[in-house]
């Protein structure tokens, strides 16, 4: 009876402990996450004060996160109304970025890889984008070609926008980011 109890305790402890640890570090942890409008960032992932869950997540794959002084990576999985980004829809990205020496905006899958599309364009850098009179960003993401700055999307399924700001003063105090200072992602229509 005692042996049975002991083996039950050990099985429960090891099973639940290992499973919960695996689950906690399989994805980017909710700890230390910063949500600004549609964009999500983990500003502490590039600093010395990285939390143990993020550190374990980074150690489980070939990750080279941007350092705190180097830049900031922002990920969007939803548009500004909170609906998940879908390849069957068209999106309009407008607005500005915080002061940076350079930025890139990319369309990726959930793992951060570019999609294999017939057209070899997965993103824009700040030098490549065509600006309007107000010098803001205005890009349309969709499956079919669009006039102006066009980001091709996969035919269907979920995707992410990744905005990377390089050498930006905001990376040190990312918690002061406001939704107005980042590009907005608006849904135009869906097929």
């Amino acid at each position: 009876m005692r042996l049975l109890t002991l083996s039950y305790i050990i099985a429960l402890g090891a099973g639940l402990g290992l499973a919960s640890a695996h689950y906690a570090v399989a994805e980017r942890p909710p700890l230390g996450r910063l949500q600004v409008g549609s964009w999500t960032a983990w500003p502490r992932s590039g600093g010395r004060d990285v939390d143990p869950y993020m550190r374990a997540y980074l150690a489980r794959g070939v990750h080279l996160p941007l350092g705190s002084g180097e830049g900031l990576e922002l990920i969007a999985e939803r548009d500004e109304s909170g609906q998940a980004l879908d390849g069957r829809c068209r999106y309009l990205i407008t607005g500005t970025t915080p002061t940076t020496r350079g930025w890139t905006l990319n369309v990726t899958d959930a793992d951060g890889h570019a999609f294999r599309l017939p057209l070899e364009r997965s993103g824009f850098t700040d030098a490549e984008i065509v600006r309007d009179e107000s010098a803001g960003i205005r890009a349309i993401a969709g499956t079919t070609p669009e006039a102006g700055n066009w980001l091709p999307l996969p035919i269907r399924g979920r995707f992410q926008f990744r905005l990377r700001l390089y050498d930006t003063p905001i990376s040190g105090h990312a918690s002061e980011l406001r939704p107005e200072s980042l590009p907005r992602i608006g849904r135009i229509d869906c097929r």
Binding site: T5, L12, A14, G17, L18, S20, H22, G61, H63
Partner: peptide
Amino acid sequence: LATLAGLVLAGIVHIVTVLLIPLLSERDA
């Protein structure tokens, strides 16, 4: 009582595992 002990053990195993992953990982950059 055994379940409670198991849960406490699970908590310890969880913390130790998360702290050990960076030290033992062979898939990191």
